[in-house]
C-alpha cells in the first residue's frame, strides 16, 4: 500500500471499510511517515481539549438581557410575506428624499441626549416660526421606524468613550427612541430619581420631550438604558414595560 493522505484521513475519521482499515493497520507497521502523521493528528486533537471551555459566567445573562432590550420581535407573518424587504426599500427611498442618513440623525439625537440636561439649548434662541431642532429630529426619525413594531439591530455609536446603541420604535403612533449602553448614562440635572427603584431609575423632561432611564450600578455587569419620546413623562415607564425593557 502506498501513502495516501485521503486514505489516512479516512482512517482517522473511522470511514474505512473493515477490510481497508485492516490493510491500513498493516501499512502503519511499516510506514514511519504515516505512523508519525497519525500520532501528530491525535496529539493535535488532544491539545484542543484545553480549549473546550464553557462561556464566561455572566455571558448568558448578558445575552438574555440584550434579547429583552432588543424589544419586540418581528411580525413573523409579515416577514414571511417579504414585506420587510419592501419596508427597507421604502426607508431607503425616504432617507434619500431627506438627503440625510438615519444614522446621522440618530447620532445627532444621542449627542444631544448624552449631554444630560442640555436639551434646552436646541429649544431656545430659535425664531418662533422655526420648529425646535429636536422636534425636527424626532419628526425626521418618524419615517424611519416601522409602522408596526419591529425588532431592530440598532445603530451603534461611540460618544466620549461610551458605546451606545440606539433603536427607534413606534408605540401607538408615538416615536420612542431607546438608547442602551454597558455603562450608566449621565442623568440630566433636572432629573427626578425614582425612590426605591432597583436598578436606579430616573425621569426628566425638557420641553415636550420626556426621558426615562434605568442605570445599572457602576461595577455591575448589565445594560443601562434610557427612553426619550415626545409624550408625558409619567407615560414612559408604561412604554418601557410595553417594549419589555423593564
Amino acid at each position: 500500500m502506498s501513502c495516501d493522505e485521503g486514505r489516512l484521513v479516512a482512517f482517522l475519521n473511522g470511514r474505512l471499510s473493515e477490510e481497508d482499515e485492516h490493510a491500513f493497520d498493516e501499512h502503519l507497521l511499516t510506514c514511519e511517515a504515516c505512523w508519525q502523521a497519525v500520532r501528530a493528528d491525535r496529539e493535535g486533537r488532544q491539545a484542543l481539549d484545553e480549549l473546550r471551555v464553557p462561556a464566561p459566567p455572566g455571558l448568558g445573562d448578558r445575552v438574555t438581557s440584550s434579547i429583552r432590550l432588543a424589544g419586540i420581535p418581528p411580525d413573523f407573518e409579515t416577514r414571511r410575506a417579504g414585506r420587510h424587504r419592501l419596508h427597507r426599500l421604502h426607508r431607503r427611498r425616504l432617507r434619500a428624499a431627506h438627503g440625510r442618513p438615519r444614522r446621522v440623525v440618530a447620532a445627532a439625537m444621542v449627542v444631544v441626549l448624552l449631554g444630560g440636561g442640555v436639551l434646552g439649548w436646541v429649544l431656545q434662541d430659535r425664531p418662533a416660526s422655526d420648529p425646535p431642532q429636536i422636534a425636527r429630529v424626532v419628526a425626521m426619525m418618524a419615517p424611519a421606524v416601522a409602522d408596526e413594531p419591529a425588532l431592530q439591530a440598532g445603530e451603534r455609536f461611540d460618544f466620549a468613550g461610551q458605546a451606545v446603541t440606539v433603536r427607534s420604535y413606534r408605540v401607538e403612533g408615538d416615536i420612542v427612541l431607546v438608547a442602551t449602553s454597558a455603562r450608566p448614562f449621565p442623568m440630566p440635572a433636572t432629573s427626578h430619581v425614582l425612590s426605591g427603584s432597583s436598578p436606579a431609575a430616573w425621569m426628566a423632561a425638557e420641553g415636550r420631550l420626556a426621558m426615562y432611564g434605568v442605570n445599572q450600578p457602576a461595577g455591575r455587569r448589565g445594560t443601562s438604558m434610557f427612553l426619550v419620546a415626545a409624550m408625558p413623562m409619567a407615560k414612559l415607564p408604561e412604554v418601557a414595560a410595553r417594549l419589555h425593557l423593564i
Binding site: 489516512l8 484521513v9 475519521n13 493528528d41 491525535r42 496529539e43 493535535g44 491539545a47 484542543l48
Partner: peptide
Amino acid sequence: RNTVLSWAHRGHRELAALLA
C-alpha cells in the same frame, strides 16, 4: 467534505508540531 477533513487533519498536525 473531503477537503474539509484534510484541512482539519493538517491543522491537527500543525498544532502538534507548533506545541512540540
